[in-house]
């Protein structure tokens, strides 16, 4: 598995296809994170951006290997494991971005609520990281479901990913929305809402989506 992860990571780094989503996330942070803004708001904002970017990265990692080369690796390691390695590589890339976003928020934001109640930085950062993780895993699940072998019509992947990201951020039932709302609402009064429940839901969601995609990878090979 380590060999596959190294291979996929090298494929992602060397292909330069990671650049557009990274630029998107950087622009998103540059627009929204203001120096001296309330820290919990900023954490919520940084986490939100991770979701669509991870959807995009997952799609990139899952389509990065040309089909004939994929046949070679799938023969050597099994189609399911090759698929899993692609998804995990996307997760790693998304996590790296999320951590950078969180670090930026810690550096720039003001540890106060919107009404000048002091917010302890360390617990706030913990909650922020968990929100990033929630959005990352939700994005990973959506990305895995919006790509071959689950969604097999090539032209639908991108619109489905975009619409799905939007719905997951807006609809109340989604883990990403719950985590973000918790942080932003808490920011009004300086209360830190650690998104345990949304994170747990996101883990289940990502595991189920990835397992489905990996199982289908050999069926529809």
């Amino acid at each position: 598995m380590i060999a596959l992860l190294r291979y996929q990571a090298a494929l992602l780094v060397g292909s330069h296809r990671w650049l557009p989503p990274v630029i998107l996330y950087a622009a998103f942070l540059a627009i929204g994170i203001q120096s001296g803004g309330p820290i919990l708001d900023a954490f919520g904002y940084a986490a939100v951006g991770v979701l669509p970017v991870t959807v995009w990265l997952t799609r990139i990692c899952l389509t990065n290997e040309p089909p004939a080369a994929r046949s070679c690796t799938a023969t050597a390691a099994g189609p399911g494991r090759v698929h899993l390695a692609s998804v995990l590589t996307a997760a790693g890339a998304g996590l790296l971005l999320g951590l950078l976003g969180t670090a930026l928020v810690v550096l720039l934001s003001d540890p106060h609520s919107a009404h000048q109640v002091a917010v302890p930085v360390l617990p706030a950062t913990g909650a922020g990281l968990l929100a990033v993780l929630t959005c990352l895993l939700t994005g990973l699940a959506l990305g895995a479901l919006c790509t071959w072998p689950v969604l097999r019509v090539p032209g639908w992947g991108i619109p489905a990913g975009l619409l799905g990201s939007l719905l997951l951020l807006v609809l109340g039932g989604s883990p990403a929305n719950a985590a973000m709302t918790g942080l932003v609402t808490g920011s009004l009064h300086g209360t830190i809402t650690v998104p345990w429940l949304p994170a747990a839901a996101a883990i289940l969601l990502a595991a189920a989506a990835t397992a489905t995609a990996c199982a289908l990878a050999s069926r529809r090979g």
């Binding site: 090298a10 060397g14 004939a68 080369a69 046949s71 070679c72 799938a74 050597a76």
Partner: peptide, 26 residues
């Protein structure tokens, strides 16, 4: 198992030796 396809794609960011080393590890 190992498999050789009829046509092998070029669109990968590796050198020959680099690709083969990755695949050897896989």
């Amino acid at each position: 198992r190992a498999y050789v396809p009829e046509r092998f794609p070029a669109a990968m960011p590796f050198t020959s030796a680099g690709y083969l080393t990755h695949l050897g590890r896989v």
